[in-house]
Structure formats: C-alpha cells, structure tokens
C-alpha cells in the first residue's frame, strides 16, 4: 500500500499539488477511492500472483457469507407460513349462516391445499358432498364463545335434508362425557311444534323436552350435520337455508 507513497513522488504533469500532499502525508484520497483500490489490486496481482489468487478466492467465498443466514431465514419463513396458515379455518369457500359455518369444498375433489392440510392434521374424515354438509358453531348469535357453564336455546325450522344430527364437541373435536351419556340429537327423535319448528335446550343439567347434554369442559363446539342436504357447494345454493338460532340463557 505504501509502496508508491514511500518513493519520492515524481512531479508529473496533470497531478495536482493536493494529491501529492495527500500521498506524502499517507492520507487516503477521498475521491476515486475505488479507482485507487483497483490500481493497487492490479499492482498486487502483478507482484504476487499466487497470493492474489488466494485473495480472490477468499473474497469470492466471503461473498457467500450470508448464505447460511439466508437459508435459515427461508426455512423459518416457510415453516412459519405453513404453521400459521393451518391454524385457522380449513381452507377457502366458507359458507356462513348466522352463527354457523360450513366448508362445502372440503367434501369434494376441488378441495384446496390449505383445506386438505387442515383436515389431515386434525385427522378428521369430513362428509363428502354426496353425503351431506356439516355446519360448525363456536359462538352464539351474539358472537360470544360457547361455554358449557351457560344454557343455550337452539331453535329453528325444518332443514332441507333427509336427516340431521346435532352434537357437542370440545375444541379438539372429541365428544365429552356428560350426565346423560348421550352426545347428540337427530331430527328424527325431536319433539316439534306445529309446522315443524323445534327448540333444543343445550345445558349441563337435564332439561325437559329436547335436551342436548353438555360436558364439564367449558368451551365447546356445536356441529350440525345435514345428511343428503339439498344444497351444493355453491354459496348461492344456501339461500333457502334457515340455520338454527343459538341464544344464550343463564350462566352459572
């Protein structure tokens, strides 16, 4: 580096006095930094070809320095994106009716990859579109999370299906032990008012009439399965549906 500067500086035409002053004082020039670096590198390569080659290799390797960090970032990003995307609902195409949500597309061959992954992770075997439709509710009509410490009144009119069942699960999809050792109701065994309207009481303690027993675990889900439902996976096909209302009563 100092090779050129330590020699007595020849006064050449076109070299300003400022440059000369800088060189003699070992001050690296402010301008054309890269040019002078280039020049020095070229000179070094001329004098020590082997070392220059080694240096070049080292510099090329040092350019790859961010590789492990980038690979790690890619790994973390990909895994995090997958984990996050599978935490929510199973895929796209949700149909919402009041408090109820259905994913008709998970029952057919046009299921999207997110829906497929969520279903596989949960270990579920959802209804095929030729079998029926499942509606899930985790909140009441006012948007409050379902809690088995409360009583609920589920009321509605006849559904366009051959048969439907209503059952309560915990958030992992398991049935919970309860007082009556019953875990659901079917449309067949239901007491109805004139015109086919029904009202179901969901509570931990026994209720007269249609009673859906709830387990001890507080948070729960309701699943309504309409077998041979008169609707396809098109969202517009649900217009005639009158999903049951879920009203919260007293809480203990």
């Amino acid at each position: 580096m100092g090779a050129a500067a330590s020699l007595p500086a020849p006064v050449a035409p076109g070299v300003s006095s400022e440059t000369l002053a800088r060189q003699s004082a070992f001050v690296p020039p402010m301008r054309s930094r890269s040019k002078s670096r280039c020049f020095r590198a070229a000179q070094f390569a001329e004098n020590h070809p082997a070392r220059a080659e080694k240096r070049r290799r080292e510099r090329a390797l040092s350019r790859l320095k961010p590789l492990p960090a980038a690979a790690f970032a890619a790994l973390a990003l990909g895994v995090a994106a997958t984990a996050l995307s599978l935490r929510g609902e199973p895929g796209f195409g949700a149909v919402r009716l009041g408090a109820w949500t259905s994913f008709p597309r998970i029952g057919g061959a046009d299921i999207d990859p997110y829906g497929r992954a969520v279903v596989a992770l949960g270990g579920a075997m959802p209804l095929g579109e030729g079998e029926g439709l499942a509606f899930v509710a985790d909140r009441d009509d006012d948007g409050r999370a379902l809690d088995s410490r409360c009583d609920y009144l589920i009321s509605g009119a006849a559904l366009p299906a051959r048969l439907w069942t209503l059952s309560a699960y915990d958030l992992e999809g398991r049935l919970r032990p309860n007082e009556a050792d019953r875990h659901g109701l079917t449309s067949v065994g239901l007491l109805r008012r004139k015109g086919g309207d029904f009202a179901i009481a969901a509570a931990r303690a026994a209720r007269p009439g249609n009673w859906l027993p709830l387990g001890e675990k507080s948070r729960f889900l309701l699943v309504l399965r309409a077998y041979e439902a008169g609707a396809s996976s098109l969202a517009g096909a649900f217009e005639g549906w009158n999903a049951p209302k879920i009203a919260r009563g007293d809480c203990s």
Binding site: A70, A71, A73, A74, L75, A76, L77, G78, V79, A81, T82, S85, L86, P113, Y114, R116, A117, V119, A120, L121
Partner: peptide, 14 residues
C-alpha cells in the same frame, strides 16, 4: 425460498 418451502410443506403435509 420461504415461499417455495411453504408450498412444498403444504403439499407434502397431508
């Protein structure tokens, strides 16, 4: 790479 890995894991997972 993150996007590619996300798609890969998503498709392989089921």
């Amino acid at each position: 790479g993150g996007v590619a890995l996300h798609l890969l894991t998503l498709l392989a997972l089921p």
